[in-house]
């Protein structure tokens, strides 16, 4: 554990130290770049405001991630089992990823209002794609000899999906979901930046208009921490869902 976390921890500490040194030596004004110490102070200072915002952003991110995961898995199953669907959907799916979310978010707010819905939609749109691509690869990558084996036992297409294709795709599904989880929180914040009543995006907007750059940094740190937490939780869920994948095997490195 220590071996794993020590090197990145040291680097992070060095970077924070350099940041502090830079601000102190150059006398950088706090409305341009606050020192890490000042950011920590802002954290304590804003603490009573934060829980509501964090809860809003986190719930949007999780709801969007769940919807994106379900949609992504469903698309993957359709693409993997119906060749026509694959031919029709695949180019469109790739094209859909070229539309920047930052452009789409105002439209979604226009359509769905300033409540939670547009943020959940943004997160779902961001997260379904890695899940769909990864799961489709997992479904298609099932060992053809295993498929022959269960077919020789008399399994039809449905039983083949159930006994071989689905379980074979579980690790791939979770590696797609982990990537998706890393983007989910940022997606929710993008939606909130456009228009919202609660959420870290709102907190960032307010801090900016009152020149509290230190509070913006507080929000950035929280977004990063939330993303990391979600990423870790998905990783844990993956281990629980596919225990065979990790039995007798060294821990997998994060992608």
């Amino acid at each position: 554990m220590a071996r794993r976390w020590l090197p990145p921890g040291l680097l992070l500490a060095a970077l924070v130290g350099a940041w502090e040194g830079w601000v102190v030596l150059r006398h950088t004004p706090a409305y341009v770049l606050p020192s890490p110490g000042r950011v920590a102070g802002a954290f304590a200072d804003a603490a009573p405001l934060l829980p509501a915002h964090v809860a809003a952003t986190a719930s949007e991110a999780v709801a969007g991630l769940v919807i994106g995961a379900v949609a992504g898995a469903a698309i993957a199953v359709a693409v993997a089992s119906v060749p026509l669907v694959r031919r029709v959907l695949e180019p469109l799916l790739v094209a859909s990823q070229t539309v920047p979310m930052i452009v789409l978010a105002p439209l979604l707010v226009l359509w769905f209002g300033i409540g939670t819905t547009p943020k959940v939609v943004v997160v779902a749109l961001i997260t379904f794609f890695p899940v769909a691509v990864s799961t489709a690869a997992g479904l298609a990558g099932a060992d053809p000899e295993l498929l022959d084996l269960v077919r020789s036992m008399g399994a039809g297409p449905a039983a083949t999906l159930r006994t071989v294709r689905f379980p074979a795709a579980v690790p791939a599904f979770f590696s797609g979901l982990r990537i998706a989880a890393a983007y989910a929180v940022a997606g929710a914040v993008v939606g909130e930046l456009v228009a919202a009543e609660h959420g870290l995006g709102v907190f960032i907007n307010r801090s900016r208009s009152s020149f509290r750059v230190d509070r913006i940094f507080v929000a950035v740190v929280i977004v990063a921490a939330l993303s990391a937490l979600l990423f870790a939780l998905v990783g844990l869920a993956g281990r629980l869902a596919a225990p065979w994948h990790h039995a007798n095997r060294p821990a997998e490195e994060a992608p």
Partner: peptide, 28 residues
Amino acid sequence: GRAAYMPQRDLLLPWRRAMENATLGCEL
């Protein structure tokens, strides 16, 4: 579905424990 076929590799399903692998054909 007429023969009990064992392919060249052992081809156990990695996501099933030994018992569930053994009973795969019966389940099907």
